[in-house]
Design a protein around this nucleic acid. Structure first.
Lengths: 210, 210
DNA sequence: GGTTGTGAATACTTTCACAGCG
DNA sequence: CGCTGTGAAAGTATTCACAACC
């Protein structure tokens, strides 16, 4: 029943969930979710059909039920631990970002290799040295590691995370890291996002829907 | 000749460019670019074929020529101005991020609507009030606006940017903004990225190549 | 009337595989 | 012999369109 969900769908589920979270109405239609998420209703229905979510024809989907199904699908049954490696500009900003906690994550630790930074407190977290990574969560394979480090450090930090048992990494460093293929790395490159916009400007063409 | 380049390809071009930038060898093969970017050689060749880039069979591509073709394709012929709206945690971190300048962008202004923040200096930029947006760059339609503001403010900030003439927006606020369709908005939602990783953890499946 | 659920059609992207050339 | 260039095939994602149902 719950075979395989396309990554593009999962990304939209995240958006639907945050729409449902700020909502009181007991039911919601695919059309409304579409409007608010910048998608279209057929897409919303197809996305929800992957979860086996059942709506009521003529009415829509039960808000509470949808919320709970999406949360389960996104693996948010319990708060998921996240560690942040790199307490520089970006790492610090991420540690202070209130959106993570609100959306199902719990920051379990902040790490840095610079002795000047270790021991300082950022957003209520004492910055820990890299070797404390191995003991920070008891099931690192179910946690997520965020890398907010310079490009030069990315490969070795990735290796440390893998060694400590992490299997999911969000990489903000503008470089590709090579890891064994049981490890999932999602790159987020800010300059790449700007390059995409810049490319369209250079071609002065009209936007597509996304 | 230079008809239309898939967005997925543009994203990879950005990566290829940063690989070429740290490089001295006068030529490079599709296979080497593939290795370093976590792609495969057929993909690289197809990507480069969209640009009309000509390699030499048996040898590879000329590094300098490729660099210059990719830069032109990404609209980086001249440094592209970028403004950052929101001088909170994230906006400040972005303003300090050295990667933007290194990769073809020039931060032209930092804006905030809080009187407490306006006038302070961040990374060499004096934070300006929102109404200065209209005069900060002379061709706002060729510039990029970055929104690093809370979800509640996102819609109205987007409207201010559009009114000031911006046509390309990178949106870090965790919400969808509705704008006229000459305006291109690229969302970057950090919680969504974590949700995607979390989903895979819940299904404890093996990663795909990306 | 309004809205879901979904097969079929379309569009887009990646991978394959091999001829062509230096 | 090595590496490019590319059509064809396979794989993925989105949109259409309409029957089924409340």
């Amino acid at each position: 029943m719950e075979s395989r969900i396309p990554t593009a769908t999962v990304a939209r589920l995240s958006k639907y969930l945050s729409i449902l979270d700020g909502r009181q109405d007991p039911s919601v239609s695919s059309n409304e979710l579409a409007q608010r998420s910048g998608s279209n209703s057929a897409q919303v229905r197809k996305d929800l059909s992957y979860l086996g979510a059942a709506g009521t024809r003529g009415v829509g989907y039960e808000t509470e039920m949808l919320r709970s199904i999406i949360r389960r699908t996104l693996g948010l049954a319990t708060e998921r631990p996240v560690v942040i490696v790199g307490a520089g500009n970006l790492g610090t900003a991420l540690a202070r970002y209130p959106g993570f906690a609100r959306r199902g994550f719990c920051i379990s630790g902040l790490f840095d290799d610079s002795p000047a930074v270790v021991g300082t407190t950022v957003a209520g977290h004492v910055v820990q040295p890299m070797d404390a990574l191995t003991t920070v969560v008891d099931q690192p394979d179910l946690a997520i590691g965020i890398m907010a480090v310079p490009a030069e450090a990315a490969q070795s930090v990735a290796e440390l995370l893998v060694e400590a048992g992490f299997r999911s990494i969000l990489n903000f460093a503008p470089t590709t890291v090579r890891v064994s293929d049981e490890v999932r790395v999602r790159p987020v490159d800010l300059a790449t996002e700007l390059h995409i916009l810049s490319h369209h400007l250079a071609r002065q063409d009209r936007p597509e829907t996304r």
